[in-house]
């Protein structure tokens, strides 16, 4: 039986809200009975996507960032969206070390981290319209312990 549960959060693109977003997603995903390591993985991936929305998507203007979160069976799906500048070449943007802001503390490893910590990362984007990053992770590695 695949029980589904959903939540969504929307918040001002201020970096002080990153912590709130991490707690909201971490608290929601505890329903899947994860390990702390799995929680930490998801928080890292989420932080990278939210930082990108704030820094690149909105270039530090204050607009809304949305994180949708759903649980289906043991799979957690997260979508981080902004209505910001968008990405012209998604494949290039996702290459490790590629960055359009080399001057700041960014190092072009955000998407690489998301891919390392989640099972699947998909990016949809349109220039001038915004970006949506969807990430999935199967929670619960201990075989036989979960019923799904």
């Amino acid at each position: 039986m695949e029980q589904t549960n959903e939540m969504m959060i929307e918040f001002d693109s201020r970096s002080c809200n990153e912590s709130f977003a991490r707690v909201a997603v971490a608290a929601f995903m505890t329903q899947l009975n994860p390990t702390l390591e799995e929680v930490a993985d998801v928080k890292t991936a989420l932080s990278e996507a939210v930082t990108n929305a704030i820094v690149h998507g909105y270039e530090n203007e204050i607009k809304k960032v949305t994180v949708s979160c759903s649980i289906s069976g043991q799979v957690l799906t997260l979508t981080v969206s902004d209505k910001g500048v968008g990405i012209a070449d998604i494949a290039r943007a996702m290459e490790p070390l590629f960055t359009t802001k080399p001057d700041t503390e960014r190092c072009g490893m955000g998407f690489a981290f998301m891919e390392a910590f989640m099972d699947d990362v998909q990016v949809k984007s349109a220039v001038g319209q915004g970006t949506a990053v969807t990430m999935k992770k199967r929670i619960g590695r201990i075989a036989g312990e979960y019923h799904d």
């Binding site: 707690v23 971490a26 608290a27 329903q31």
Partner: peptide, 14 residues
């Protein structure tokens, strides 16, 4: 609760 634990851990990290 699980939720309170993740809140505390985030707060401690902060």
């Amino acid at each position: 609760t699980r939720e309170e634990i993740v809140l505390a851990m985030e707060a401690a990290a902060e």
